[in-house]
C-alpha cells in the first residue's frame, strides 16, 4: 500500500528544513510559498527522509481569485506519496511559478499543457510552447472566464 504523508507531518518536516516555506496545511495537503517552491521540491527529491523520485501528476485549477498548481509525488523506495499545492496569480494577474523540469523530466509536457490550457507561466522551462492548441490560439480554454465559441454566439445574439 502506498502510504500518504499526512499534511501536518509533511508541513513540519518541510518547515524544519526550509524556513517560511509552508503557507498552510490541512489533513492531506500542504500549500507551499511559490517563491520557495523550487527549493522545497529539490529538498523533497534529494533529502533522504522523502526521496520523492516520481512526479505522478502535475495539474492546476482555476479558483477565480487565484490559480492553484498541484503536485502529486511518489517515493518508490519509501512507497509513500504526498500532495503539494501552490497558490499563484492572485487577482488573475500574470500567474507564474518556477519550473521543476530540472528536477523531474516528467514535468516537461505537463507544464506545457498547463501553460497551454490554463495560462500559468513556468519560469525556467526551456521549451514553453503551446502543446495541444496551435500557436496564436486566443486565450487559455481551461480558465473559468474563457468564452467558448458556442457561448460567444449566444451572448452576441442576446445582445442584439
Amino acid at each position: 500500500m502506498i502510504k500518504e504523508w499526512r499534511g501536518n507531518f509533511l508541513a513540519k518536516k518541510i518547515e524544519l528544513k526550509i524556513k517560511n516555506s509552508v503557507e498552510k496545511f490541512d489533513e492531506k495537503n500542504v500549500w507551499i510559498n511559490p517563491q520557495k517552491l523550487h527549493e522545497v521540491c529539490k529538498m523533497l527529491k534529494e533529502d533522504s527522509l522523502f526521496e520523492f523520485d516520481l512526479l505522478n501528476s502535475l495539474t492546476s485549477v482555476d479558483y477565480i481569485d487565484h490559480f492553484e498548481v498541484i503536485y502529486h509525488f511518489t517515493s518508490i523506495s519509501y512507497s509513500s506519496s504526498c500532495i503539494i499545492k501552490c497558490k499563484v496569480g492572485y487577482s488573475r494577474k500574470n500567474p507564474q511559478i518556477d519550473s521543476v523540469i530540472d528536477l523531474w523530466r516528467g514535468a516537461d509536457y505537463q507544464e506545457r499543457e498547463i501553460w497551454d490550457l490554463m495560462g500559468i507561466k513556468f519560469i525556467g522551462h526551456p521549451n514553453l510552447k503551446r502543446i495541444m492548441l496551435w500557436d496564436g490560439f486566443p486565450g487559455h480554454p481551461l480558465r473559468k472566464d474563457f468564452v467558448t465559441y458556442d457561448q460567444s454566439i449566444v451572448t452576441s445574439r442576446g445582445g442584439e
Binding site: K3, W5, R6, F9, E15, K24, F25, I76, S77, S80
Partner: peptide, 23 residues
Amino acid sequence: AYPYSFKTLPSEFYHEKVEEGKI
C-alpha cells in the same frame, strides 16, 4: 533494479489526526 534499497518510515508519519491551521 532502480530503487536500490527499500526503506520504511515510522507509521506515525502517515497516520495521525491533525487540525487545520498555520505553522
